[in-house]
Amino acid sequence: MAGWRAYGPAMAGPKGIDLARAGIGAMTGLLLAGLALRGLSLGWLIAPFGASAVLVFAVPNSPLAQPWSVVVGNGVSALVALAVVAVLPAAPWVMPVAVGLAIIAMLALRALHPPGGAVALLVALGTTEGWAVTLGSVVLGSAVLMLAGVLWNRAAGRAYPFRQPDGPGPHGTTDPTPQARIGVDPAGLQAILEDYRQSANLGVADLARLVGAVEEAAAARRLEGISAADIMSRDLVTVGLDTPLAEVAELFRSHGFTSLPVVDGDRLAGVIFQIDVIRRADTMTAAEMMQTDVPLVRAETPVGALLPILSDGGTEAVPVVQDDRLVGIVTRTDLVSALARRLAGG
Rank of each mutant, 00 (worst) to 15 (best):
T292H: 14
F162S: 08
P165T: 15
S69V: 03
L37H: 04
V139R: 08
L135R: 02
G188C: 14
G75K: 05
A58D: 06
G169M: 07
A229I: 12
R341Y: 09
T292P: 13
P168M: 13
G100A: 05
F257W: 11
A51V: 07
I192K: 06
G314W: 03
G345T: 08
L326C: 13
L107T: 14
V239D: 01
L147T: 05
R332N: 00
R221Q: 15
P319R: 01
G29V: 10
A208C: 09
E224F: 11
A53D: 11
E247N: 13
G3K: 09
V262T: 08
W93A: 04
A246R: 12
T315D: 03
A2W: 13
L82V: 09
S233I: 08
A2D: 15
S233G: 09
G50C: 07
A65N: 04
P92T: 07
V263E: 02
R280H: 15
A81Y: 10
K15H: 12
L109V: 10
P115A: 11
L251Q: 10
T128S: 01
F49R: 07
G149A: 00
A102L: 01
A47N: 04
S52T: 08
P89N: 11
T285Q: 08
V123S: 00
R267H: 14
L112C: 14
A12E: 15
D175W: 10
D334I: 00
P244F: 06
P9S: 15
S199I: 01
L189V: 06
G203V: 03
A65P: 03
L151M: 03
A159S: 04
G240C: 05
A33V: 04
W93M: 05
D206H: 12
G314P: 02
D18H: 08
E247F: 12
V321W: 05
I46K: 04
P9F: 12
N153K: 02
P186R: 03
D293F: 11
E224G: 15
S233E: 10
Q322P: 02
L310G: 09
V119A: 05
S52V: 06
P302D: 05
G100M: 02
L207C: 08
L189T: 00
P302A: 06
G116H: 14
A91T: 09
P114T: 10
A228T: 13
Y196G: 00
A344M: 14
D282I: 06
V71P: 11
V85R: 13
